[in-house]
Design a protein around this nucleic acid. Structure first.
Lengths: 336, 336
DNA sequence: CTTGACTCCCAAAACGTTTCGGAGAATATT
DNA sequence: AATATTCTCCGAAACGTTTTGGGAGTCAAG
């Protein structure tokens, strides 16, 4: 409630001594230190954050950009992740601000505003594109940042990502091993790294098996996008018997398409993200998800280490993808 | 990239003039103003946020506390709401920081930290309790805040809330009109205002209809809590034929209990929140939700008006609850 | 008695902005 | 011609903290 000057005056000490006492410096006698601390506790003194930030030239803030369009805001656990991240950052004295992108502005504009106004010490980027202008900008400015998802940037940067390639390759091979030969892929927008990565995984598996890679349809990473993409694949002269979908939302849209065209239950399907609602679809949606506990803490740790100046190469986490076995990937395989 | 002093020097002007030119004061000639603005644009000048905050004695920040336990983080659209709120706050120069509550600390501690460190201009509180210590603290300190959910505080404060009483009363009367006489309530923890409010709505309807109010079980506002509470009600000598559940999560847990004990499909049920997964349960979960578009914008507006000093009485929004008619509330009614 | 080390404390500068209270020149008014 | 008035601009203070670079006083060793 008070400031340092008043506290110092009431104690008959200088501002310097009070400040240093509270910060635990050794050049303040133990008795004085205790006296100061007790007085500070009594009046509930907390240093003024703005003043300290100005003096220390640190914003004590990290911003995360929240994409509004399209494909929403990402996985359901996203807020949990942010919450965990914020909690661990707070332990280091940093707060997390959320920075949604208003209509008419680009994510780059947001980054610029935060960085050039020295509002943040670091940034957290989600939904990276293969060629991501935010990444280029932050690298140019030399601002620490961590991305959720890799990019094709030539200079390395810190990230946490799931190994979509391996995950989708494995899922496709699993279908092949189960006897499927016409395995389709419902892809997300290829400018996003995750969508492209997953598509590559499917394609690699198909080529390994000597199968054609024409059963691929791209759509928006939403229910509706999956629905439309699935309809497109179902119009093909020889329909797929299995579908590997870039996201659960798209998979749920595909399930709707299957019900309409096919009566459902004939085509096997698998998604990615482990949306809670996937447990309730009919059939329950088999899916994949990134392994790793406490993702938020990992992001926080990478951010702190990036701020501390550790090289980007040591701040990259590629997590394995695990399969969530429910039922939708196990539809009876009709003879070709 | 530069600061005011450098910019002023490069223009041969004083710091004062440059500052005032950029702020559009009238006591700077139009030509100078243009010259300054152009130079500022060219070098990408942005005022240092910490310095301005210190000088203007405003933090330009609003914090929202995120409860970790129990019952999680609330409705699925919560992040969307926050995002919308942050977007509108940003238009007024305020950023939104998320403040999760670490283990071992109370939400009150968090409030204290933010308020006494002058880190925020206002706070946003969610999951209010009937007697909420955060509210008392902020009222005492005179810090502007808005709550999501009412409290029983004697001095009024700004809030946005759904009319749970009316909603649950209506839902109960709807069951009564459909012929139900043993209508149970699965209640959330009664220290939370929303849970108590909804319980009161159910009880009021029951009493209006001259029915006993003993078919009520309380549990944690989670799937498991609803499951256990439903089991408790199903153990009663005369089972309920309909269940009004405080939240969708609890309703989904109740559905699980019904499947186990009852084979399912015999007891009508309705929840609240309109979780996306409710559309996929079997039967699809009828539910309720608060009316109102762009809730985030409403919160932002109330926050800004509270900061501007409008009296609390004018900053209270009670939204009607609307019924979402799916299927679970329409199970065939067996003869008593 | 001097010297050096050590302990405890402090004055002042700095961080970058906004803003108060003029100052000087040009223009209008009497 | 003297006085107001307006138009532009600026110096300096202030916001509250952290930190630099000492300054006294004490004590032990030389």
């Amino acid at each position: 409630m008070a400031n340092l000057k008043q506290l110092a005056q009431s104690l008959g000490l200088s501002i310097t001594t009070v400040s240093r006492a509270l910060d635990g410096y050794a050049d303040v006698s133990a008795t004085t230190r205790e006296r100061v601390r007790e007085a500070a506790d009594r009046v509930g003194y907390r240093p003024n954050a703005s003043a300290r930030r100005l003096r220390k030239q640190r914003a004590e803030l990290v911003a995360v950009t929240l994409p509004s369009d399209p494909g929403h805001i990402g996985p359901p656990h996203f807020l949990d992740m942010l919450s965990g991240c914020a909690e661990h950052l707070a332990a280091a004295g940093l707060n997390l601000v959320i920075a949604p992108v208003p209509r008419g502005e680009s994510e780059l504009d947001i980054c610029r505003r935060f960085v050039d106004g020295r509002r943040v010490d670091a940034m957290l980027l989600v939904r990276t594109k293969r060629k991501d202008e935010r990444v280029e900008f932050l690298q140019l400015r030399g601002i620490p940042f961590v991305t959720n998802g890799r990019t094709e940037s030539l200079t390395p940067h810190p990230y946490i990502d799931g190994d979509g390639f391996a995950g989708f390759r494995a899922a496709t091979l699993r279908f092949h091993a189960a006897g499927h030969r016409r395995i389709g892929h419902i892809a997300g927008p290829q400018e996003y790294y995750f969508a492209h990565d997953r598509c590559r995984g499917w394609r690699a598996a198909m080529e390994e098996c000597g199968l054609a890679t024409d059963l691929c349809a791209e759509g928006a990473p939403l229910e509706q996008g999956g629905y439309l993409a699935a309809l497109e694949l179902l119009r093909q002269p020889s329909r797929p018997t299995a579908l590997v979908c870039a996201t659960d939302e798209m998979a749920i849209g595909a399930l709707r398409a299957l019900r309409e065209v096919d009566g459902g239950n004939q085509i096997s399907i698998v998604g990615h993200d482990d949306l809670p609602m996937g447990a309730f679809t009919s059939p329950p949606l088999s899916t994949m998800r990134m392994t790793g506990e406490h993702l938020g803490a990992s992001f926080a740790s990478l951010l702190l280490r990036a701020i501390a100046g550790e090289p980007a190469e040591e701040l990259q986490e590629l997590h394995a993808i695990e399969f969530v076995d429910r039922d939708s990937h196990r539809r009876p395989l009709r003879a070709a």
